[in-house]
Design a protein around this nucleic acid. Structure first.
Lengths: 200, 200
DNA sequence: ACAAGATGGGACATAATTGTCCTATAATGG
DNA sequence: CCATTATAGGACAATTATGTCCCATCTTGT
């Protein structure tokens, strides 16, 4: 009775997520991609896509939810509350590295609607903010580098690494360089931050 | 005889550049913006825009040229061959910081066409590459950080700073943070790179 | 003030994309 | 194996952006 119009049969769930994954993959590279392209990428007919998401905005909304869930899972996996904050931040970055499409799209998407009303920390993830704050307190992250700045840098580093990998470098090398750069950026003065030995 | 159809009268030059500037400004925020929006931003009628650039691609091509020229001028101003390479790189970054729209758009634009054929260093600016190489030689830039990686980071840092400023921070603070971050990223091991007494 | 040049603004045809609907076909599950 | 459910694929109208013309009006330089 709760939802008599649409029922989540296994088959429907499969195609639904197939569409969402394809949408993230396609739209992360071209925000204006036509729905037909997404349907093709998902291996379904355009009419099927429309049955699941009547309008484009319906799809977009579902994608936001989908990507948010992925981030939540990845964040939990990084155990942001354990150990020195700097190390936790590195773990987090490592986890996020695998969310290529979702994070890229989520960022592009966030840009379009904040035409005016975007407050400074609309972009900021409270979990990450808290982690960096902890780092400022336990001294593993330089207090001279503002919280928000670090968070912006973090997205930028991830994006840079993805681009670097996409253009031919190995994913491992890109990841290593990114984590090294992150260490440099947050290392407290006087402590070089141990730029490197620890691979992965 | 060379170009008997179009003559560069002062008035035409004015509106032409007005259109180009508006186009860069608008398209750097939304690649798919309709031409009417650009015309509005430029303060001309859509028909006028079409008279200067019959098709969308004509406008895009002219924009590339326009932005490239701006970069060339800014690069020259930074005197990339003078003094320690690390300092020159900072000067360059400082100059580029003022090219907000142009660099953002140029980057977005470059993404769309490199669907397949993008070699690794299609994105790289030979001037910047040369400068970083000089830094690797004169020891002011850490040799452990690859040239291409630094260059990718440079664009990412610029973009981060622009976003940071756009979201409410002062341009000066964003610039300061960015240059400090750049110093950290390229500082040779053992030399903290003088990462900033000056707060804000 | 006059003539050449440039612009604004509207009318129109043309694509391209979107959203809706219908039917035959395939798959799924009991 | 059969009934139910889901899908592919195409037809269609509505919407939107693009490209082309035309003419009245405004600028510019002389």
């Amino acid at each position: 009775m709760s939802r008599d119009t649409i029922i989540d049969t296994p088959a429907r769930i499969r195609t639904r997520t197939a569409i969402l994954k394809a949408a993230v993959s396609v739209l992360s590279q071209n925000q204006a991609a036509p729905l037909g392209e997404i349907a093709d990428a998902a291996g379904v007919a355009r009419s099927t896509l429309h049955r699941y998401f009547p309008e484009r905005t319906d799809l977009i909304d579902a994608m936001r939810q989908f990507a948010d869930d992925e981030i939540t899972v990845a964040t939990a996996r990084a155990r942001p509350e354990d150990g020195p904050a700097a190390e936790a931040l590195i773990r987090l970055c490592h986890e996020y590295f695998d969310l290529w499409d979702s994070l890229t799209w989520l960022y592009l998407d966030s840009l379009k609607e904040c035409g005016d009303a975007s407050s400074f920390d609309d972009q900021l993830d409270p979990n990450v903010s808290r982690l960096i704050e902890r780092g400022h307190l336990d001294g593993t992250i330089d207090r001279a580098v503002p919280n928000a700045w670090i968070q912006h840098l973090l997205w930028a580093l991830l994006y840079t690494a993805w681009e670097y990998a996409r253009l031919g470098s190995s994913k491992h090398e890109a990841l290593t360089l990114m984590l090294d750069s992150l260490r440099r950026l947050i290392a407290p003065a006087g402590n070089p931050g141990q730029t490197f030995p620890s691979h992965t």
